[in-house]
Simulated scan of single mutants.
Amino acid sequence: MSDNHNSAGAWAKKYHLASRTMIERILRPYDLGSTQWYVLYQLAHQGPTPQRDFLALLQIEKPTLSDVVSALVRKGFVEQTPDPKDQRQRILALTETGRGLWETLPDPIALILSIAFDGVDSDTLDLVATVLRNATERLNNYAPEGNET
C-alpha cells in the first residue's frame, strides 16, 4: 500500500496551504487578503482591467469577486467605472491611494519563493514546475466516461 500522505499531490497541497498561510500573515498588517492582493497586483502591473476578467484570472465565483471588489472600493484602493463599450460592465483601476499602498506592500510571492526554494537549483525548479503544470492540466482536462462537459 502506498503512502498517499507522502505523495507528490499531498506535498503540493501542503505547500499550497503553507503558502496561503504565509501570504495571509504577510498581508494582515495591511488589512488585505490574498485575493485582494492579486487584484491589486493585476491592476498595478496591467492597468485598468474589466472586472469580469478577474473571474478567470483568479478562478473565483462572481459573488466572491463582488465581495473582494467591494472591499477594495470601500478601502479606497480601487475604483469601478462603467466600461465605455458596455455600460453594464465595470472597469477596475487603482486609485492614487491604491497605488501608494501598492508601492509600500511587500511582495508575498517573492518572499515565499525565496524562503521555500532557497538553495534549490533552477533545473530542479523547472522540473517541479513542469510536473505540477502537466498534472494540473491533466486533472483540469479529465472527464470520466459519461461525464464529458
Score class of each variant (00 low, 15 high):
Ala135Tyr: 03
Asn140Glu: 15
Thr95Val: 12
Met1Asp: 05
Leu125Gly: 07
Glu24Pro: 05
Thr64Glu: 11
Thr49Asp: 04
Tyr30Lys: 12
His16Phe: 09
Val128Tyr: 11
Lys75Trp: 03
Tyr41Cys: 01
Gly119Cys: 14
Met1Cys: 04
Met22Asp: 03
Leu55Ser: 02
His5Cys: 02
Glu79Lys: 10
Ile60Phe: 00
Gln87Asn: 08
Glu103Pro: 03
Thr95Met: 07
Thr64Pro: 01
Asp83Glu: 09
Ile26Lys: 11
Leu111Asn: 09
Leu139Lys: 07
Asp31Lys: 05
Arg133Pro: 01
Gly119Thr: 14
Gly47Thr: 04
Tyr142Glu: 13
Thr124Gln: 12
Asn141Val: 08
Leu127His: 11
Val39Trp: 03
Leu43Arg: 01
Ser19Pro: 00
Ile26Arg: 13
Ile60Cys: 08
Ser70Val: 00
Ile115His: 14
Asp3Phe: 09
Asp86Cys: 07
Val68Arg: 03
Arg74Ile: 02
Ile60Val: 15
Ala56Leu: 08
Arg99Lys: 14
Arg20Cys: 04
Ala12His: 10
Arg28Ser: 12
Leu105Asn: 01
Asp126Asn: 09
Pro29Glu: 06
Ala135Cys: 11
Thr21Met: 06
Glu24Arg: 14
Gly33Leu: 01
Thr97His: 07
Pro84Asp: 11
Arg25Asn: 14
Gln87Met: 08
Val131Arg: 06
Ala143Gly: 03
Lys13Trp: 13
Tyr15Lys: 09
Tyr41Val: 01
Gly9Tyr: 01
Pro106Asn: 10
Arg88Thr: 15
Gln89Ala: 14
Asn141Trp: 05
Ala129Thr: 15
Val69Leu: 05
Leu32Gly: 02
Leu65Lys: 04
Leu72Tyr: 04
Trp37Lys: 03
Thr149Tyr: 06
Leu94Gly: 00
Val120Phe: 08
Trp102Met: 05
Leu40Cys: 03
Asp86His: 13
Leu65Asn: 03
Gly33Ala: 07
Ala135Trp: 00
Ala116Leu: 08
Glu61Asn: 09
Pro108Ile: 01
Asn141Met: 10
Lys85Gly: 04
Leu43Val: 02
His45Glu: 10
Gln89Arg: 14
Leu111Tyr: 07
Asp118Phe: 07
Pro29Val: 03
Pro63Cys: 12
Asp67Thr: 05
Ile112Glu: 09
Glu96Thr: 15
Val68Ile: 15
Val78Gly: 04
Leu65Gly: 05
Gln36Cys: 06
Gln87Asp: 13
Arg20Gln: 12
Pro82Arg: 10
Val128Asn: 00
Asn140Pro: 00
Lys14Val: 09
Leu72Trp: 00
Gly98Lys: 01
Leu17Tyr: 13
Leu27Thr: 08
Thr49Leu: 10
Ser7Met: 08
Leu105Met: 05
Leu94Ser: 02
Pro144Met: 11
Glu79Thr: 12
Ala71Pro: 00
Thr124Ser: 09
Glu103Arg: 15
Thr104Trp: 02
Gly100Leu: 12
Ala110Glu: 14
Asn140Ser: 13
Phe77Tyr: 15
Asp53Cys: 02
Asn134Lys: 11
Gly9Asp: 11
Thr81Tyr: 02
Ala71Met: 00
Gln36Val: 00
Val120His: 07
Ile112Phe: 14
Val131Asn: 06
Thr136Asp: 13
Gln80Ile: 10
Asp121Cys: 06
Asp107His: 12
Arg20Ile: 15
